[in-house]
């Protein structure tokens, strides 16, 4: 999706639809399957799928205690898929543009800047982990459990250094508060169609299926 505003709208309404019940989750899953570029994105970077690990643990706990694990895993699973799509389809600079567009050049810009720095740190960590793994591979050092501690410590220090550099950069550029993000949002008919479908699925998710069929009669 090219227009980040429509993507955000779609993600919010689909998350609500998926969380509301199994029927909404199925609709949101269908949207993810047919209206997003999910397989290409997951192939490009699969590590966000680790987010399913805590979901699996909680599901097992619910199953063991005799709770309704099926509804939980379906609803939260789809919410996670939508969240992974939202993260992977997002491009650097989009968040600050949306915030500045929605909340203005002062508060919106600051919110967007904070968000961009957060997203930037996640991408930075992703790159760092890949590079550290490559360095271990080249040196022939097995990157097992023994290496987790030095790698983690290295990543924390790298993030701290990056934060310091970013603070220096903002200072050098004269940042005090607020700013202008020249927001231009490319859009396409497909974007409008896909987000329209998402909103329709939200309405459908909250509408009892029986009443829906009465309505279309």
């Amino acid at each position: 999706m090219q227009d980040p505003r429509l993507r955000l709208l779609s993600v919010v309404v689909l998350s609500i639809a998926a969380f509301s019940g199994i029927f909404g989750a199925v609709l949101a899953f269908l949207w993810w399957l047919f209206c997003s570029e999910r397989p290409i994105l997951l192939k490009r970077s699969w590590w966000p799928t680790f987010a399913f690990l805590p979901l699996a643990l909680v599901t097992i706990a619910l199953w063991v205690t005799g709770e309704d694990w099926f509804s939980y895993v379906v609803r939260l699973g789809v919410v996670l898929l939508i969240a992974i799509y939202a993260y992977q389809d997002q491009k650097p600079g989009e968040f600050i543009k949306i915030c500045a567009w929605a909340f203005g050049p002062k508060r919106g810009f600051d919110m967007g800047l904070a968000g961009e720095m957060g997203f930037g740190s996640i991408r930075f960590l992703e790159d760092e982990v890949r590079r550290v793994r490559q360095a271990f591979l080249l040196k022939g050092i097995p990157s097992g459990t023994r290496s987790i501690l030095p790698i983690s410590a290295g990543l924390v220090f790298a993030l701290l250094r990056r934060a310091e550099e970013q603070a220096d950069l903002l200072l050098v550029r004269g940042y005090e508060r607020g700013g202008i993000a020249c927001a231009k949002f490319p859009s396409s008919r497909m974007d409008v169609f896909a987000s329209g479908i998402a909103v329709f699925f939200l309405i459908l998710g909250f509408l009892p299926v029986r009443e829906f069929f009465i309505l279309i009669q």
Binding site: Q134, A135, I141, P150, A153, G154
Partner: peptide
């Protein structure tokens, strides 16, 4: 045996 010297030397660091 293969070795690569990265363009950016910090990419090769694994130790403290």
């Amino acid at each position: 045996t293969t070795m690569l010297s990265f363009q950016f030397p910090e990419w090769a660091l694994t130790e403290k």
